[in-house]
Design a protein around this nucleic acid. Sequence first.
RNA 1: GCGAGAGUGGCGGAACGGUAGACGCGCCGGACUUAGGAUCCGGUGCCCGGAAGGGCGUGGGGGUUCGACUCCCCCCUCUCGCACCA
Length: 815
Amino acid sequence: MRRYEPTEVEPRWVEAWEREGLYRADDDPADERPRFYALDMFPYPSGDLHMGHAEAFSGGDTVARFAAMRGYNVLHPIGWDAFGLPAENAAIKRGIQPREWTYANIEQQASSFRRMGMSFDWTRRLHTCDPEYYRWTQWLFVTLFERGLAYRKTAPANWCPNDQTVLANEQVVNGACERCGTPVVRKDLTQWFFKITDYAQRLLDDVDELVDWPDRVITMQRNWIGRSEGAQVTFEVAETGDRVEVFTTRPDTLWGVTFFVFALEHPLVMKLAEAGGTASEATALLDQLQATPLTNREQAESREGVPLGVHAVNPVNGEKVPCFVAPYVLMEYGTGAVMGVPAHDQRDFEFAREHGLPIRVVVQPEGETRDPDEMTEAHDHEGVMVNSGPFDGVRSPESIGQVIAWLAEQGKGAAAVSYRLRDWLISRQRFWGAPIPIVHCPEHGEVAVPEDQLPVQLPQDVDFRPGGESPLARHPTWKHTTCPICGADAVRDTDTMDTFVDSSWYFFRYCSPREDTRAFDPERVGRWMPVDQYVGGVEHAILHLLYSRFFTKVLYDLGLVGFTEPFLRLMNQGQVIYGGASMSKSKGNIVEPMPLVERWGADTMRITILFAGPFEDDIDWKLIAPDPDRRPPMNAWLGRVYAAVFEAADREGSQPETLTRLTHRAIRGVTDDLERFRFNVAISKLMVLSNEIRSALDAGRGAGHAARALTLMLAPLAPFLAEELWREALGNETSVHEAAWPPFDPRLAREQRVTMVIQVDGKIRDRVEVDADASDDACRELALASENARRFLEGRQIRQVIVRAPKLVNLVTGG
RNA sequence: GCGAGAGUGGCGGAACGGUAGACGCGCCGGACUUAGGAUCCGGUGCCCGGAAGGGCGUGGGGGUUCGACUCCCCCCUCUCGCACCA
């Protein structure tokens, strides 16, 4: 019996594949094969590969190899998302530079990827922290700047006191820093933004094109953009004459307004408080706010607020209602002021109760039938009913439309759309990122660094420890430069870009990674993109994907690309957890993949992880590999396959090939499963096939055809074993990965089926398909059908029964 | 609260509307022993039964169908996302 030694076999093939240049994508336009861009979300080099990488890349690699075997010219690149905070933190701890730590980890991961047999085109490797790369990140910034899509403003920002930098809204989760969990505080800063809100509608509309994305990701994208339709209505402050806009989705409830509320940051608040004689109370409230988190500040049940002492005039009926300032109104959404309609809004209702304000239910005119739902909205039926002015009713889209039209006619408001999406804050006060390529000139203000002066390189010698201002600002000389326009002394912008900027365009760069005169070659991008299959974690469902979609649309508008969506299909792998909990250092339950690969082989690792469960679901390593000292079942199976194929190969020639039908069915099944990312099911089918081969051999029959087909089908899933079998056992000259996916005969793959139809009074009452070559099965199935028919016939007046069953005996009688 | 997804053995999980539980783990029994980090063979949804056999079974309740894990309606439970969004 031959014994399979993966740890000896596998490194040999890694070398051979590299030598043969097996996985290089062919850029030649003359290559007539259809192209397939298989993309995996590039890793952050935080250390060696972890289980999450092992799972995601095993799946992505299977897809890429499968595509290649099906005749595609495959682009399967790899790179590293290598800027970012952890490098600084690690470097501080070790007293080294972030780049040392980063590049060392990249080398470690690269070597592990090789060991795992990933079919990457290594010639396209990139790192976002290379000047050759971030030069073009900076070029993109400049391009956006010149198009008016990058701008600087002073605004309250989310500041993480631990990381000493601002965060994008997207990076604040429940009021805390997404990365370190520290509660975020509010800080007024001048920051750079990308005007992603200009693209809000398109980002929303084009979601419809993303048919091969997971539903939940599509939903998350939609919710994040958060479009609401309604009306903009103008109120006037009675005492000062200031006009204030509010946004509402329920203009039909304008007749139920009993108060008016401003957000704390609303620019009119202090002026109105002074006019109303409540300046001190308002100031107290504002002070209280200063130190509290910007987003999600105390999801207070408390409906606190301070009256401003002034009144707003309701434009629909001229009524004066009291104004308040209250933290439950957010400056970030709508106009920062809302009309208070306690009968039709839960929050307004709570506020009105707290402050003893009247509640008015808007109903249809003249006390006609009230919608019961409308009554539930009225919260305990408190309050007075009022009718809805000149309109037919409330809450229906029609009545809302009527009200909007009427408001517009009266000049009191207009239809409006509001988005939750904010502009993307990209400034970071940290060192390890791409410097923002802007020069501040006393004369010319913000001036983009000219293209021929890019990249603006990071200095080598800088104290990068966080200190509240950008480390680059503390460098003695770095920031001093001259204005590109007038040559006067000027200073560089000392902030760096959010690393999400780096990762929002890397997939373009892969198409022509060595270009040094432009970010990418539009022709090559046009040939390879959009990405056919993107694989990565669901944690990037919003940020990375939204930003990448935004960049793609911008590049489309610039005429650089001919498509508006970068990723056609998206697949999220599940997490690898341990003992029901996500792996973490603090729980001490981390399992590292590479030691297991060293011990049992990469194929065992890959196939174990893919077999463990559906690709999108979390898998619990504790359930897969209960005992680290035991031989993993997948390793044992690979050994059996190895022995069986060698034996089948030895016997082939003198023995007739068998198992043909079974083999063709397996080919069809596995093809289908791989297309649908059902790796676990595909592996099951290969196990069945391998068991059949072994049974055939035990029975003294040949199984050459089946052994060859199995080897081919194994290639995307267990590439090393397949290669060993293909070249060593089956004696082929070229790699199994260059071979075609096993062809299958639809005639053989499809069972020979016979349809039996039972008609009763002209209507089909039953239709049974049976496998004609499996007579036992056929008889059983037909017996079942005839039993069903008999039950149906029982006790009924039946005139005519027709049974059609070609080639089969009449089994049913009746009628 | 809003939205999305999921409920099948001891476990991970299979089943174009057609024999539910493939495949694997675990467990039980056996074989081989040069006693292995093994390997091989058989069994394994639950209940009754020595067996043959029978009954019950895909969260619960209805419906469509000759036939439902699968399609439709209602309910329950769980997971995930968003959440003072006006």
